[in-house]
Design a protein around this nucleic acid. Structure first.
Lengths: 336, 336
DNA sequence: TATTATAAGGAAAACGTTTTTCTTATATGT
DNA sequence: ACATATAAGAAAAACGTTTTCCTTATAATA
């Protein structure tokens, strides 16, 4: 392992000069000639700095932690993807931790922040609020991703309300008037806002809101299945279902099929989040694509900014953008 | 940030003693009394060691890198999950890098190995063989996961042949005699072995192997779709399809539906890998579940072992186990 | 009692950087 | 020509550990 000293020796300068070249330190002056001499030495020896030594000295690791609920959730895959790309772009590395059935002790993250990472992305609700607030003591920044809690401004979220409106609007535009909504857990901000979007769009289009068409569910396939069965039992069932996410949509479709009906012939179904297999489902699923990748990317950008500015707080950010991706699972009632 | 020195001062001992207690160094003797005194001081000051300093001194980071093709692939999600759990268990951290559309320069990983990580998991075919072999120069261990290349023994793979046999056997047991196989890319070991399993099982059951029933594909939905369309054009189409993975299976099912047929009424379909949404598909998909989680876990175990034993080589390992998960997409021809 | 073994812990160097301060030589202004 | 400013680089301390080697006191042995 070649060290900075060896580079210095070969270039015939003092180690400190090499360090300044390495860090593009502009406050000190270095002759162009020596700079190139040093760079040649670096190349010749195939030198790369020891990051442990660097971390020790600068008290920065250029690593970012990220807590997610589950690796097997394509929504988080997209967020991670965006986060990782942006981190790489800025020379940071991402450490991802799944909370799934893991007894990561109470102070796992505060310890991690203390000793190893420069900041933390919290993209999971598995960490309770008190615990999150206690991270303030570490004096290192963290960002809530796709989640908000009281008294914490550092969040990056999506415009879920717009997502809910778009999904509902699509069904209305297709001529549906009896539109059910299978929600996510309503104690989560995302589910609540999608629900709000649904109500607002109904109102905007002068379609009466009917409580019987709303089923609170839990973002799972099983939940979607059960909720759909309840909707099927109604005297006048809906003709279209706005599912809070794709898992719920899949469960609902399964319930529809199991009860002898067809999608979209008998029921139109739309879900939030254009996961990678949405187009592969039979029928392919109409979705509202949310900018998950960008949310991950922006969250990292905000975090890195907070790290380098040594700020622990910044104003929350909402990522705009939600796109309807029409596919086979929704059908128009108008051209009949 | 409290340091080891402060702990030493509070406990009234020399820093070196604290270090020895911290590292459970048994070669040196320490009175039980001082040991508890030190531990009390550690708790009182809420001390945790600076990992940068530790890394600098010991030349180990307790971090493992992992290269995957794509975050959006549930197969790799499971592998990561297993890897991450095992790493956490052993006090290691996992750095995951997706190769997707990222210009990670040729020597990204060798640099990473040099400066930051203790070992590397290669779970992608995006890194070419020469490049992998050049990692040997870093003198740090790496493990191939779900992949083999010549002259590299350090691999952990699955018994894909058994997976192929199980899938084929299931279809045969259901009474099918005209069984097609849509393969993955046959230059990959996994696809080749699944194909071999298919042939062997046919032979074992005295069912003639027919070339027309084999379509080479590429593990994608689109590939599965196209291959299935070719199978549908045959004079005597198969009654069952063994798809090399779930994406291919979804594509095939879509093609079947688009051509006016039903699954499983007209065609039975089975795929490899029991991804999390297989049960949510309509019809739910019969799969062969492979021990992906365990493969990830074992790969990390092997890597950590290599790290601590300072060995660069170890004998390859094949993870046993493959389980049929029967669902709605396959149906018996026998009870007609 | 004299010698040696052992237990318990202290001293200090080292890991590879960064950064503040110091030195020297040359350029600038009057 | 003198004082001063600046450019270019050297010196050295420091970051927080680990680890090898020493020291001292006590216990064991002859």
């Amino acid at each position: 392992m070649t060290t900075l000293k060896e580079v210095a020796k070969l270039a015939n300068v003092h180690p400190s000069v090499v360090s300044r070249v390495l860090n593009k330190d502009n406050t000190l002056n270095i002759k162009e000639e020596t700079r190139t001499r040093i760079n040649e030495a670096i190349n010749e020896l195939n030198y790369s700095p020891n990051s442990a030594a660097r971390s020790l000295k600068t008290n920065q690791s250029r690593m970012i932690g990220m807590a997610i609920p589950d690796f097997n959730n394509p929504v988080y895959s997209s967020i991670i993807h965006g986060a990782e790309d942006h981190a790489a772009m800025e020379g940071y590395h991402l450490l991802v931790y799944s909370m799934k059935q893991k007894g990561l002790g109470k102070d796992f993250f505060s310890k991690l922040l203390k000793e190893r990472i420069d900041g933390l992305l919290i993209a999971t609700s598995d960490i309770n609020n008190k615990h999150i607030l206690s991270l303030n003591e570490t004096k290192k920044p963290f960002v809530l991703v796709n989640r908000m809690i009281q008294d914490v401004e550092n969040y990056v979220i999506l415009d879920d309300e717009r997502g809910g409106k778009l999904a509902t609007k699509h069904l209305i535009d297709l001529g549906h008037r009896h539109i059910a909504h299978i929600t996510g857990p309503l104690y989560t901000g995302t589910a609540l806002k999608r629900f709000q979007g649904y109500r607002e769009m109904l109102q905007e289009k002068n379609i009466p809101f009917e409580v019987k068409y709303v089923q609170e569910s839990d973002y799972t396939m099983e939940g979607g299945y059960q909720s759909m069965e309840k909707l099927l039992e109604l005297d006048s069932p809906p003709t279209a279902i706005f599912a809070a996410n794709v898992m719920v949509a899949m469960g609902a479709i399964k319930a529809i099929h199991d009860n002898g009906f067809q999608v979209p012939a008998d029921f139109s179904v739309i879900g939030i989040h254009d996961v990678f297999f949405a187009s592969g489902l039979s029928p392919s699923l109409t979705t509202v694509d949310m900018p998950l990748y960008e949310m991950g990317s922006r969250a990292v950008a905000q975090l890195i900014n907070a790290i380098s500015e040594r700020k622990l707080k910044f104003p929350g950010e909402t990522i705009d953008g939600a796109n309807l991706i029409p596919r086979e699972s929704t059908r128009s009632l108008l051209d009949e």
